[in-house]
Amino acid sequence: MAKQGTATKRPRRERGSLNPEDIVAGAFELAEEISIDNLSMPLLGKHLGVGVTSIYWYFRKKEELLNAMTDRALRQYAFETPFIEAEDWRETLRKHAQTMRQTFLGNPILCDLILIRSALSEKAARLGGKQTERVIASLVEAGFSLEDAVETYSRVQLHVHGLVVLQRLSDKNRELSPESTAYYENVIIDPETTPLLAQAAAKGYHSGAPDDRNFEHGLDSILDHATRLLSGENHTQKKSTTARRATRSATTKTSKPRTRTATK
């Protein structure tokens, strides 16, 4: 459990020995102990063995420090997440999604900075855009239309991020209150009143749980749909629908409006 408002005090540093990189590195160390939510400039100063004014010299407020931490976190995230290869797009996209999820689950600070914290610096936003651009480019190279490539990767991102955030929020609640349970754990399953759910639970199926089984099932569904898109099945359906709409539109335009005969 993250500690509330405590930090290990280091020996006093020599004057002038502090730099922004040391501050950011120390902030990550402290956040591992007390969480991003409890991180503060005074506690960070104590952790680094410097006066808090030394930190304010480089970062005027906590928001600027969090931006710098997010920049570093995104660089780490981009480095750890494998690229998508056009010639083997399905399996490499699967590995990309799996590694993305494992990276966030294995590093709560990374998750809090990138997924839960809403603000991003311009540098971080550009880095995220460049990474997404590379994935889209690989999918387009694999044969996807630009629209299908964007929609496919968007679904993968939403699936991964959504399940990771649900798990992280559940973990954060447990940090605050060890007795608390996740929403999907509060569902009462009784063999008499909910026999189907009871049978499913006995086989390891849990409705709404962000677990491995539900993650892989959802990912398979996204990849299966993407495979159909690439095979042309959905393209044919879209062309047929577009043709029908064009025909209806042309018929409407050429049809003459009815006129009423005046009665005397």
Rank of each mutant, 00 (worst) to 15 (best):
N107T: 05
S249A: 12
R13T: 08
G162K: 00
P191I: 04
S231M: 00
L66W: 00
A246W: 08
L110H: 10
K9E: 13
H225S: 14
T152Y: 07
F59L: 00
N67D: 13
E63T: 05
R168E: 01
D212R: 10
N173K: 12
I114W: 05
N38W: 03
A243Q: 08
R174T: 15
G162S: 00
R15K: 07
D190V: 00
G218Y: 00
P257Q: 02
V52I: 15
E147A: 15
S40A: 09
H161V: 12
R245Q: 12
P257D: 08
L146Q: 13
G128A: 03
L166S: 10
Q102V: 14
T254H: 08
V156H: 06
L66V: 09
P20K: 08
L163H: 01
D71W: 01
E85F: 08
P178L: 14
L230Q: 05
V165C: 13
Y153H: 04
A201E: 04
N67E: 13
V52M: 14
E14P: 03
A125Q: 15
K203Q: 11
D22Y: 12
T236A: 14
L74M: 10
T254K: 13
A200E: 08
D171S: 15
T152K: 05
K46E: 12
Y153G: 01
Q237W: 05
A182F: 04
A97R: 07
R60M: 07
D112N: 03
E133L: 11
F144A: 02
E122C: 08
D71S: 03
A149G: 03
R155C: 02
D37F: 04
Q102G: 06
R75D: 11
L93T: 02
S240Q: 15
E80P: 06
L229T: 09
R228F: 13
